[in-house]
């Protein structure tokens, strides 16, 4: 579904992604883990079109999408839940969700999607007319995911959905991701929280300073002594 080959990205003159290749197949949940500053968010931003690749190829269902404008990439069905949630804090929950469905043309599908989001996140229904900035961090994360689901994503990019959340909230967010996975939504998950990411995902890529150093089946990696040492606190 998504095929990235030899991607390089730089900020001004400093290259931060040095030839990354990865792929995501239909229905898969793929995790991309690594330390702070490894370039995980940069990769997602490039996939969404917020950043332009320096070189390399990004294919989505066989079509090149590297360097396309952001709104064209969203039209193709690649939708991102950005780092730090990035909700529209001065607007209501309702308006945030409407903006998630900005490109939606079918009123019926909007209503169906909205029902589905309300089932996943009942809190959003309760707070529908409230200003989004007044919600807690965890609720805002629910809103950010709900908003993304309203745009009929074919591939969901999640940038550290557990960042800054309490352990309880983190658990809830990962439960939602499990539900979405069961529904067959294809996801690429960026996480610093390596253990949860490895546990939930089918396959994992480990990124170190802009290069993929390890990739493979998540169940295998979770038991790998080297991975344990470096990312799981050496247990």
């Amino acid at each position: 579904m998504l095929e990235v080959t030899d991607l390089r990205v730089k900020y001004d003159t400093i290259r931060v992604i040095h030839g990354v290749s990865l792929n995501v197949r239909e229905g898969e949940l793929v995790a991309l883990i690594g330390a702070n500053g490894a370039g995980k968010s940069t990769i997602l931003k490039t996939l969404s079109g917020l950043l332009k690749p320096e070189s390399g190829e990004i294919l989505f269902n066989g079509q090149p999408i590297g360097g396309l404008a952001c709104h064209k990439i969203v039209q193709q069905g690649i939708v991102q839940v950005p780092e730090g949630r990035q909700i529209f804090s001065k607007m209501t929950i309702k308006e945030n969700l409407r903006l998630g469905a900005f490109l939606e043309v079918s009123r019926k599908r909007w209503e169906q999607n909205l029902e589905r989001v309300f089932t996943l996140f009942p809190i959003l229904k309760e707070r529908y007319h409230q200003v989004a900035g007044t919600m807690s961090g965890g609720e805002q994360q629910m809103l950010a995911i709900g908003r993304a689901l309203l745009s009929n994503p074919r591939l969901l990019l999640l940038d550290e959905p557990s960042m800054g959340l309490s352990p309880l909230m983190t658990e809830q967010v990962f439960d939602v991701l499990r539900t979405l996975k069961q529904e067959g939504i294809t996801m690429l998950l960026v996480e610093q929280n390596a253990y949860d990411a490895l546990e939930i995902s089918d396959r994992t890529y480990i990124l170190e300073t802009g290069t993929i150093t390890l990739e493979g089946d998540s169940r295998r990696l979770i038991n790998d002594p080297g991975v344990k040492q470096a990312y799981l606190g050496g247990v």
Binding site: L50, C70, Q86, I87, F88, S89, K90, F102, L103, S151
Partner: peptide, 13 residues
């Protein structure tokens, strides 16, 4: 409110 988030919603800014 939020320019980058708007782009991620598919708005042609």
């Amino acid at each position: 409110d939020n320019m980058d988030a708007s782009r991620l919603m598919g708005i042609n800014i």
